[in-house]
Design a protein around this nucleic acid. Structure first.
Length: 399
RNA sequence: GCUGGAGUAGUCUAGCGGCAAUGACAAGAGACUGUAAAUCUCUCGGCUUCGGCCUUCGUAGGUUCGAGUCCUACCUCCAGCA
């Protein structure tokens, strides 16, 4: 199972640098976990992941559900994928929303957007106390995942860390719905824990389970669920860590994390689910999140958005440019001397092999950018310079 | 030289009498946060007080209430025949 050691805390008593020890190695926190939904990060090899100093990979039980027996036969996610390092699987809880109330929508952090839920009859996923009935969006086959199924899938996949099956509510859901959904998520958490304890060690090492906190933007719900999950036990055993979940408005993120983390047991690791914008990671680390994951660095790379210390830019604007992607960047792409113009030419070429090379190079750059940010945050926490680092980073990044 | 065919916005392309032009690509702008995402949205002749106004389909005329669309001439290109 995972062990967590806090090495240095921020003055606010919440943010910390630490080390998570897993059966597949250590994670120095704060840390960004790369997202390899189906067991591999798109357009990045295991070697690439090591080259950008990624420490852990997150995959998704939902996407891997059908091949989970093969993954078990292959020795578990870390070995099967060739990655070799620490791994985490999501429960499929995100798909409750992305195929349900949020089908066809963007998970926005802006107030003006994402205010409508998808109509029930149009959804591909429907929630009940038992779990989630859904239609596979690729082959149209009906399927079902509840807490027990999610735990069974995740135990076969065998990541070091599993997530309890939860219901992610959308920004459009009101207080009453969040109360209802949170009650369900807590009952699912207990069922998840019970089933996980029954199944763990299936792959010869002790797999861990994080409970996931929901509760939307309401303090009373967030604090209450943090206490409930923090204290939850089955046969004398509780969660090994916690997932901080939800669809957040940017301006609420810090407060919500503070409510959760003031209530959660300090000695257990916390994973902030699905965020990686630098400002979000900085707030997250400050407010006590230890690990992060997000599809944005790789997805945005594929879509032409390149990260730099002076803010992001769209590669479309740089035809023929001989500028480096980001001056002084230590990623393999920049180290190899790729310029904005040369990378853009690869991206826009009609040649499939060249485009794939672009996706690889751009993904490595963006992932390295975010991984490096978490390394710098960790260093700043350890040396007591976090506040200065945060201010200077954001001033340049947003300036 | 003759006989066919073709010339449409940056490129290719639809249109074959109806109220100023289809689609694709390129280009431009935006989005993307536990991946239905190598995706999606918008713009793409000019001007606009956003209601419209003006200018366009090789060139010049013509027929018509109305013409990329029909007719005539010319120009250019392609194919075949000399």
């Amino acid at each position: 199972m995972v062990k967590f050691k806090v090495q240095q805390k921020l003055g606010n008593g919440l943010g910390r640098a630490g080390i998570i020890t897993t059966p597949h190695g250590e994670i120095s926190t704060p840390a960004f976990m790369v997202v390899g939904t189906r067991g591999e990060v798109r357009f990045m090899s295991a070697e690439d992941l090591r080259a950008v100093n990624a420490q852990a990979m997150l995959s998704n039980g939902y996407h891997l559900r059908r091949i989970s027996p093969e993954i078990a036969d292959g020795g578990g996610l870390s070995e099967w994928s060739g990655w070799g390092g620490p791994t985490l699987t999501d429960s499929g809880g995100f798909q409750v929303m992305s195929l349900g109330s949020g089908l066809g929508k963007v998970v926005s952090m802006e107030r003006e957007r994402g205010v409508m839920n998808t109509a029930h009859k149009e959804r591909l996923a429907h929630v009940s106390e038992k779990g989630v009935d859904f239609t596979d969006p690729f082959d149209g086959q009906p399927d079902f995942i509840g807490p027990e199924e999610s735990m069974q899938i995740q135990c076969r996949i065998g990541a070091d860390i599993h997530m309890a099956f939860d219901e992610l509510t959308s920004l459009a859901d009101d207080y009453d719905y969040n109360v209802e959904a949170l009650g369900r998520t807590e009952r699912w958490a207990e069922r998840s824990l019970k089933e996980h304890l029954r199944l763990r060690d299936t792959l010869g090492y002790r797999q861990s389970l994080y409970g996931v906190l929901q509760g939307g933007r309401w303090e009373v719900l967030r604090r209450s669920t943090a206490r409930t999950l923090g204290a939850m036990q089955v046969n004398g055993e509780g969660f090994d860590g916690f997932g901080l979940g939800g669809a957040f408005l940017k301006e609420d993120l810090g407060e919500i994390l503070r409510w959760c983390n003031e209530e959660l047991p300090e000695e257990k690791p916390r994973h902030l689910l699905g965020l990686s914008r630098p400002d979000d990671i900085l707030i997250g680390a400050e407010m006590g999140a230890d690990t992060f994951d997000c599809v944005a660095p790789t997805r945005e790379a594929r879509h032409g958005k390149i990260y730099t210390l002076d803010g992001d830019f769209n590669l479309r604007k740089f035809a023929g440019s001989t500028q480096p992607l980001d001056e002084g960047c230590d990623c393999p792409t920049c180290q190899a001397g790729w310029t904005r113009g040369a990378l853009r030419a690869l991206w826009r070429s009609g040649d499939s092999a060249k485009k794939q090379q672009y996706y690889n190079l751009a993904s490595m750059h963006n992932v390295r950018f975010i991984v490096r940010l978490t390394e710098q945050i960790r260093a700043a926490i350890v040396t007591g310079e976090f506040d200065d680092f945060k201010r200077e980073f954001l001033m340049r990044y947003s300036g």
